[in-house]
């Protein structure tokens, strides 16, 4: 799996956007869209990595002026296509996607993307729903949780109405390592866990499965809540791996929140090699986790079904670490020391 950034431009303003650092790095310094030549090289990269799916990200990928050409190029070479979009898709790229078979094309629509910097307004919601109805079963609804209170009920209704893929992809908003986006604080995770466990039962009754994106941790759910989720068929997992976000300037980034800190040049390498390099870069932080208790937690050390907890999002974990520009003067030892402390200063 690897995500290809084809656009550094987005026309929305989501408060939790974790690609903001990535996009701002390239403002005014690089082309905002991938060239056809570079995209062809990315397809070569996927081929040599034995990856059969092209995952298009941005910014907003459908804003690429040659979006249709890119999708056609990918399809001509036999790739299936997954597009990560805010859902306010213009007519031309939408037509391109709806002409593809649902077997070859999946569109992950971020349901709480917005221009307003808050929640989507009525006009955005209406426009997004119209797009989703056209996408039909190609549409997989996604939702980024960035506040402890949220409402997923409308998504169930929309899945039925638009005959979408019967699943909801859930993401926990994570912090950009050196940035200032809005994200869910780990202290709020258990409250979110309780709501998700309740909602999973409701969703299962409608035949809808919950899928967890990266950054979830085992301890945000009680044993009962975890059992409820499993009973409801939710895809519960504690993931935090290098996704491989391939930037326009050909860097392989661990994931957007770690832009500028954990990345490597793609060059002529394949995805497993790049992933291994990024794992090595981050290994030293893996002993810790998002909570102070993680380094001694049995869920993390030994693993519990359905798999060992990773300790949550690496960006969230790395934010706990600090550096101090310390300069400390050690006086010369006096003759014959053992020592007499030279002068005992006043204690703060």
């Amino acid at each position: 799996m690897a995500n290809l950034a084809i656009s550094n431009v987005c026309n929305l303003n989501c408060p939790y956007c974790f690609a903001a650092a990535y996009m701002s790095q390239t403002i005014g310094t690089a082309r905002p869209f991938i060239t056809i030549e570079a995209f062809t090289q990315r397809l070569d990269f996927l081929e040599r990595s034995h990856i059969s799916q092209v995952r298009l990200i941005g910014g907003e990928p459908t804003l690429h002026p040659q979006f249709t050409t890119l999708v056609q190029l990918a399809r001509q070479r036999g790739f299936t296509v997954l597009v990560f979009t805010h859902g306010l898709v213009r007519a031309r790229p939408l037509t391109c996607l709806t002409t593809l078979s649902p077997d070859d094309c999946m569109v992950l629509v971020n349901m709480n993307a917005t221009r307003s910097g808050s929640v989507p307004d009525a006009a955005e919601t209406a426009q997004r729903e119209a797009v989703i109805r056209q996408l039909g079963s190609r549409a997989l609804l996604g939702f980024n949780i960035y506040r402890p209170q949220f409402n997923l009920e409308p998504l169930l209704a929309l899945i039925q109405k638009a005959n979408c893929h019967p699943a909801i992809r859930l993401g926990l908003a994570q912090p950009i390592l050196d940035g200032a986006n809005v994200y869910l604080h780990p202290k709020q995770y258990p409250a979110v866990g309780r709501q998700l466990a309740q909602f999973a039962r409701r969703a299962a009754a409608d035949g809808v499965r919950l899928e967890f994106d990266c950054g979830f941790v085992r301890c945000m759910f009680s044993d009962e809540e975890l059992a409820l989720l499993q009973e409801a068929g939710a895809d519960v997992a504690w993931r935090c791996n290098p996704i491989l976000d391939i930037s326009l300037d050909e860097r392989a980034i661990h994931c957007f929140p770690l832009t500028g800190r954990v990345e490597t040049a793609v060059a002529a390498q394949d995805a497993p090699t790049l992933r291994q390099q990024l794992i090595v870069q981050t290994q030293v932080y893996r002993r810790a986790g998002i909570y102070r208790e993680c380094s001694f937690c049995p869920h993390k050390r030994q693993g519990t079904p359905p798999g060992a907890c990773t300790g949550g999002c690496l960006a969230q974990t790395m934010r706990r670490f600090r550096h101090q520009n310390l300069r400390f003067v050690l006086p010369a030892p006096t003759v014959g020391q053992g020592c007499q402390p030279a002068l005992l200063g006043e204690i703060r």
Binding site: Y285, R287, S295, F296, F321, L326, R327, P331, V335
Partner: peptide
């Protein structure tokens, strides 16, 4: 007579640390 001059120590930029529940975790 001072056999050694005073020494100044600094914490290099690649050293980062975090407070954990039962330790301070320092990474190089």
């Amino acid at each position: 007579i001072t056999p050694n001059p005073p020494q100044t120590y600094f914490c290099p930029p690649h050293i980062r640390w975090a407070y954990d529940a039962a330790c301070i975790l320092v990474v190089n």
